[in-house]
Design a protein around this nucleic acid. Structure first.
Lengths: 230, 230
DNA sequence: TGTACATCAGTGAACGCGCGTTCACTGATGTAC
DNA sequence: TGTACATCAGTGAACGCGCGTTCACTGATGTAC
């Protein structure tokens, strides 16, 4: 009834285009993505795609937003797989999910956190989506702090007044966190990104061969012990 | 005398090509590097470059090798800026130099440790050059261990027999290291790469603004304390 | 010191390719009476 | 239920661009006698 029929079809094809784009990105990398190859696989001509995305940039933006959504959802699901009071378990699950998502979505991951795509410029919406995934990590560390698990670690973190003011001013996304909690969350992010990113780029290959899983597990446990999670 | 004159000129122009290539990479990114734009800047025609590099791939290989050399040299210089017995000082200098080199050579750094360049396939020589930079880090940690500084940390690292065997079998580049020392060096590499890479990709921007230096210094100190360097 | 020859840097034209984007148009689908 | 009209998906041709690479050729530089 009405134009819903057409609108629905339109949405479906938009999704199909993105799905094929992801498939091709997984095969040949993000930078070689072209409208032509997508159209070819859909048995369409290239200009037809302009009915669904106003430009190549527009398509890439949509892809990046989807990637953020998928990534954030995976993190949230991992966090919520354990009750709120199991702080260590939640952080462990979060780290594992972070790494697993990246390993099973290597191209999307480097699209989000790696080198920017050549011709592409980030939109404001994509930036917000990125913040949102950081909030998940932040929430777990925040909760652990409020339960008194991290006082030993956090007390040792002291900032200059300038940085302290910067982090304090940042408390805008609904919740409020102390500068030390934000710092530790950034530290945790850097930690898991470092491991994940080197593994994704095959840098461990020569040394660890196929034992990257074990290495990562040990490192995650070491990190958690170092900051006071048991 | 003889053909040395021509050979020397040939070498100089090879270097000039690479220098201009780096300049353009710094300006517009590695993936948009083209023989045409290099030739234009040298007031040459594109085919002329084929006198100096047999293909675009060949040029990229040379660039990557140079980057590794420069990077490794920076690390070695940092390490050797302090006497061998100052283990903590050496590691600190190494971390700082690692980050500084990456920040002042962002495109080369991501050429080495980031996403591979689209059409490019790594040569065996480039792989060896990468190993060489890791050896610098390894040597400092190895020395600290032999001085008995790390026993507390290393004892806690236990591998499965399979991984232990893998790391033990690896001791081929002249020196011999225990699996735990290799593990800790990998951990240190992952740590400093994580911080560096997120900073390079502007991921800290919203949260830290221009206080990334301070954050990095704090993190480096925290890492060193956690593994037993004072 | 002077001449014949080989070497090689650089040119200009061409090849074949793929890219994103625009435009006028056809034909099918849905809407309103 | 049937007809006139509007909407819009998709086509095919074209534009302008840049890319890496090859090839036959010119002209200068260096070599050997």
């Amino acid at each position: 009834m009405t134009s819903n029929r057409r609108q629905l079809l339109h949405e479906n094809i938009r999704e199909e285009i993105k799905a094929i784009a992801w498939k091709q990105i997984a095969q040949t990398g993000a930078s070689s993505l072209s409208l032509g190859s997508i159209a070819r696989e859909m048995v369409l001509t290239t200009p037809a795609l302009y009915r669904y995305f106003s430009s190549r940039n527009d398509l890439v933006s949509a892809l990046i937003q989807d990637a953020y959504r998928s990534f954030t959802a995976a993190l949230e699901q991992a966090r919520d797989s354990l009750p709120p009071e199991e702080h260590a378990g939640r952080l462990l699950a979060l780290f594992s999910a972070y790494r697993q998502w990246a390993l099973s979505h290597p191209e999307p991951y480097s699209l989000l956190f790696g080198n920017p795509v050549p011709g592409y410029t980030l939109t404001a919406e994509a930036g917000q989506a990125g913040d949102h995934s950081f909030q998940v990590l932040l929430s777990v560390i925040q909760a652990a702090d409020q339960a008194g698990k991290l006082s030993g670690t956090l007390q040792k973190i002291t900032h200059t007044p300038a940085l302290d003011a910067q982090l304090t001013a940042l408390e805008n996304s609904g919740e409020t966190q102390s500068p030390q909690v934000i710092h530790l969350a950034l530290s945790a992010w850097s930690f898991i990104h470092g491991i994940t990113s080197l593994e994704l780029n095959q840098q461990y290959q020569v040394i660890l061969a196929d034992h990257t899983d074990e290495f990562a597990q040990i490192e995650i446990r070491r990190f958690m012990q170092a900051v006071g999670f048991e």
